[in-house]
Simulated scan of single mutants.
Amino acid sequence: MGWSVSDIPDQTGRTVVVTGANSGLGAETAKALAGAGAQVILACRNTEKADRVATEIGAAATVAHLDLAHLDSVRAFADEFTGADVLINNAGVMAIPLRRTAQGFEMQIGTNHLGHFALTALVLPKITERVVTLSSMMHQIGRIDLGDLNWEKRRYSRWRAYGDSKMANLMFGKELAARLSAAGSSKVSLIAHPGYAATGLQGHSESFEDVFMNLVNKTPIPQSAAGGALPTLYAATSPDITTGTFYGPTEFFGSRGAPGRSGYSKRADDLALREGLWTVSEKLTGITFDI
């Protein structure tokens, strides 16, 4: 059967931050962690939806406002944040039309990568154990363009932009792991992906693709959001993890099943590109890491 929610070690006494925990993978992740004894902080833009999830969880859950598309909100969250054992960078948007964040970043790279990059930099001193960043199988189509990260020169492609943001998540998680290790830190950085899970992430492209994806989500092809959350939960709780490792489903070409080590595009191991992405991300956000 493989690793499941029942295998989550006792989380009593631990606190975990989950971004985007108001629905989908994030909500399932928070519920499972609380079920294992953790205190969970639901860091969400839509606090009304997050409140409903928190009510379902009970006393173990608290809600905090966090809009990753606005760096002022990221800073405000970090200022109020008192600390946690684990940070799970889960929130994201997928294949949306061209839009921009409050700071003018392309919305997908801005929310999925730059927002989480800034958040992690600001709260890392208050995280005691590990950071888990969510990527996607779609990182395979990502081709990071350091000279045009925000799609100001290229003709916009919503799926390519999504792939870029997910490649950025993978590269960030790996580079953070390398830098923490080089600094002699006991903190670890892991990356996870959900395979193909039916969540509210699909259906926001505002194109004919929404109809197709919503139909597919009603078939047995995708796994549930709870199933898609398993790699994240493994990365966040297992004592057997290795820093810098990418975890995902292990069946049906990585689209579903129990979590384990996941294959990935070796472009994520391009050290010059990873370091370049880190430098550009610090420049764009104006926020640097103290590692």
Rank of each mutant, 00 (worst) to 15 (best):
Q223V: 09
G227N: 13
I221W: 12
W151S: 10
H204W: 10
V216H: 07
P194C: 11
G227D: 15
P194K: 13
A192Y: 10
Y162S: 00
G184L: 09
A235Y: 06
A198K: 06
Q223F: 04
F208I: 06
M171D: 09
P220G: 08
S224A: 08
D164G: 03
K187T: 02
L190H: 11
S189P: 05
P231S: 12
S207G: 04
A177Y: 03
S205K: 00
D240E: 09
D145C: 07
G227E: 07
K187N: 03
K166S: 11
R158W: 05
D210A: 03
E209L: 13
V131C: 07
R143S: 09
T237H: 04
A192G: 01
M167W: 05
A198Y: 03
V132W: 07
S135D: 01
W159E: 02
T133S: 12
L176M: 09
S136A: 05
L180N: 00
D210P: 01
L233H: 02
R154W: 12
D145H: 14
Y234Q: 06
A236V: 05
S238P: 09
L201V: 00
H204G: 02
K174P: 01
N217S: 15
Y196W: 14
Y162N: 01
G147T: 13
G200N: 14
N169L: 06
D145G: 08
A161F: 08
M171L: 07
S205Q: 08
G244N: 08
V211L: 15
G227M: 05
R155W: 10
M213T: 15
G163A: 12
T243L: 01
E129T: 10
K218F: 13
P222F: 04
R160S: 11
A161Q: 11
K153H: 15
H204T: 13
R143A: 12
A229I: 07
A177M: 03
H193R: 09
S185A: 09
N150P: 10
S189E: 10
T128V: 15
P220S: 03
G147L: 13
I221G: 11
L215M: 14
V216M: 06
G227L: 00
A182T: 13
S207Q: 08
W159S: 03
A177G: 03
S165E: 14
G195K: 02
L233C: 08
D164Q: 13
R143V: 12
S205M: 08
A192E: 06
K187Q: 12
V131A: 04
M138H: 08
Y196M: 14
H193I: 02
L170Y: 08
K166G: 00
S157Q: 15
H193P: 01
K166E: 03
G228C: 00
S205G: 04
D148K: 05
M167G: 08
K153S: 15
F246Q: 01
A229S: 10
L134Y: 11
S181I: 10
V131L: 02
A236S: 02
R130P: 06
A182I: 03
V211H: 14
L201D: 00
Q202K: 01
A236I: 04
T128N: 08
I221E: 09
S238W: 04
S136Y: 03
H204P: 00
